[in-house]
Design a protein around this nucleic acid. Structure first.
Lengths: 383, 383
DNA sequence: AATGTTTGTTAGTAAAGTTAACTAACAGTC
DNA sequence: GACTGTTAGTTAACTTTACTAACAAACATT
């Protein structure tokens, strides 16, 4: 029973840890506390983080020299001891550029502060431009947003439809006719600013997680021209083996056929619940049924179909929060209720006592804010 | 447009990084390289890890003092320079106890080496014991396995049905009538050895990932009395918000009703594809159809139903490898083919060019080996 | 005014990595 | 057979990072 000479193919290959990595980790930790809890003293940070006051002082000094942290002056709390000096993330002195390419009719960009508030918007109506023309539009719009910034920019975040790999290379984005477009490089070379590109639904889930409602085990479904989703497992974005995670639109729902989809299959989710599909269904009202009744039926159907596809995912991943983002005209409390009902009925719901189905807090800006979160995360280690 | 005074509820709260954490990380890194690539010299380790020879020497010294690494003597490769001294993980001097509670008829335990080879087995036939009687049986069997070990034991790994939280507390395990049973504490206090308890399907996916086939984006579906699954996302186990991930058996399949399930719903996956359900369906052969034909039809149906539930998950997570574990009598290449066919037909398969559906390499020992991997991971940082 | 508390800094130490330089042991060449 | 070059592993000194201990500054309370 000799043991096999060990040539395992276990894939986990971490990299060596140098002292400086720990340092970066702790710098990010300080920023995280400040970001989440607001202004506090070095002594507060020490208590919150477990690091000593000496170390915190050193970290804060470095963060101030980087411009990421500022002193706000002494706190005026009346209590014994030397008054503390409040420090905070440099909320007013740092800005983020967000670019949202999710809408097929209009490209949107914005200057945002660190809290995800939109300070200035710029938009550009498109005429279905493809390829390099679309790329040029993105660059142009980004430049406009950069020009509108009033403070130092820590980075540019882009949320785009399509499949985006870890390096910001857009493998495919049918809307813009992009194949292997290195949008990261294009933007970075043009503006020499840290740039982070990700899928729009992935951005949305990060934005909702940080700025809206949603735990570390959440999923955000985005209803628009298509149907996409972003997923967090234990607070970490699911990317998938081919960076193609979130593909939901062309999954077939149910076992009873369904409408013909543009992809050639029958009964794809997109053919049931994408906004164009819903509009189409609403327009085809049979005789002898009131508009209200018809609408209720169509929306009920859409919610059920969405629930049928989501139920296995919610159950297997033990998702806590399901957030739906889409036009308020269609995505409303009624839809949520029918959706939750369907998922509950089709799974062992008692094992997920705190499961929620919610609307996105700010569906219009969710991609912009998500793109900002991605910048925050990559540049400051925050979020 | 003043920014909101930042009280974000972003959940990510890491802990401070001390220099010693980096040290442990690097110690684990050395073990990982040895484990994956087999015996090598300190200089080899230095090249592979990026750390200097000096540091590697220091790490190896510490690992030898812990008994985790041994020197194998000089290599006899004929080349210029001082001959190297090969070091390796102490494969022969360390053993792992694995316990598999997945089968409802027999509890199984084993002494294993670091490569997951079973050296000695012990088994215990059960008579549907519940509660503390079942716990006592587990303790008894574990004790027998420990007695059979011939080398130092680095830990005990247990794979059990039911919902197991991060601390080894079994929240519910209907098979044994367990509710909030702290199996980790019971075993640890009795034997004073590092103990790690996890769900059987979670163990199985870890075992398959390390010892069998499967990438960092994989899913293992275990067909037995019920239907469960374990999922790896980016090489990390999915646990879920309530530690309840992997619940697959009581998800409803399709939109055409289906058999009544013991849970009260109609058309649960378990009522289609659990082994008892398949047996039942096979037994109910209508007149005028040959046994072979009937069997083919039933198995085709089971594969399709499984595929219908898995398709959304595979698509949304962008799973690379789907592994099915179950009795060879039913889980065969034919089932796989029908399953892959169904998933491909119901999703946008072109986005997952390397998607595979496979049989488990060693379905009988997969839980034992998975439990061992869990011990390896937690005690040595390997796998 | 004396006492106690709290903050932030200074000084020195321990841990864990680095570079530079060394010894040991081999193959190949003149 | 001595010399040269190569490779492995170790020793020594330095750098980074966090720690503990001690201190001065600035406040409230007695």
């Amino acid at each position: 029973m000799t043991s096999t000479s060990g040539t395992r193919r276990s894939m986990t290959r971490r990299t060596a840890s140098l002292p400086s990595h720990g340092r970066e980790h702790n710098l990010a930790l300080v920023l995280q506390h400040l970001y989440a809890q607001g202004p506090m003293s070095r002594a507060d940070l020490s208590r919150a983080s477990g690091l000593t006051r000496v170390t915190i002082s050193d970290l804060v000094t470095e963060l101030m020299s980087r411009g990421h942290v500022i002193e706000l002056g002494t706190s005026n709390a009346s209590r014994p001891g030397k008054p503390s000096i409040l420090v905070d993330i440099n909320r007013k002195g740092l800005q983020i550029i967000g670019v949202d390419l999710a809408d097929s009719a209009v490209m949107r960009a914005a200057v945002m502060d660190l809290d995800g508030n939109v300070l200035t918007r710029v938009e550009l109506e498109t005429n279905d431009e493809k390829g390099e023309a679309a790329t040029a539009q993105v660059i142009d719009l980004t430049g406009q947003a950069i020009a509108a910034a009033t403070e130092r920019i820590i980075g540019i975040g882009v949320g785009t439809p399509g499949i985006v790999n870890n390096d910001g290379l857009i493998l495919t984005a049918p809307n813009f006719g992009w194949t292997n477009v290195d949008l990261h490089r294009e933007i970075h070379e043009r503006f020499s600013l840290p740039t982070h590109v990700l899928n729009d639904a992935d951005g949305a889930v990060m934005g909702e997680h940080t700025f809206g409602n949603g735990s570390a085990h959440m999923m955000l479904v985005k209803l628009g021209r298509g149907v996409g989703c972003g997923t967090l497992v234990n607070g970490v974005r699911v990317r998938g083996a081919n960076a193609a995670s979130g593909e939901l639109g062309h999954v077939i729902v149910g076992t009873d056929q369904g409408p013909l989809c543009i992809c050639g299959k029958h009964g794809c989710l997109e053919s049931w619940v994408s906004i164009p599909s819903i509009r189409r269904a609403l327009a085809q009202r049979p005789e002898g049924i009131s508009p209200e009744e018809h609408r209720a039926k169509i929306m009920q159907q859409a919610a059920e179909r969405l629930g049928i596809v989501l139920a296995p995912i919610v159950s297997v991943l033990d998702i806590q929060d399901l957030v739906i983002a889409g036009p308020a005209r269609f995505v409303d409390d009624q839809l949520l209720a029918a959706l939750q009902e369907t998922i509950t009925a089709r799974t062992n719901a008692s094992q997920r006592p705190n499961f929620t189905v919610q609307l996105s807090e700010n569906p219009d800006d969710i991609v912009l804010r998500g793109a900002a979160v991605n910048v925050l995360f990559n540049e400051l280690g925050v979020a």
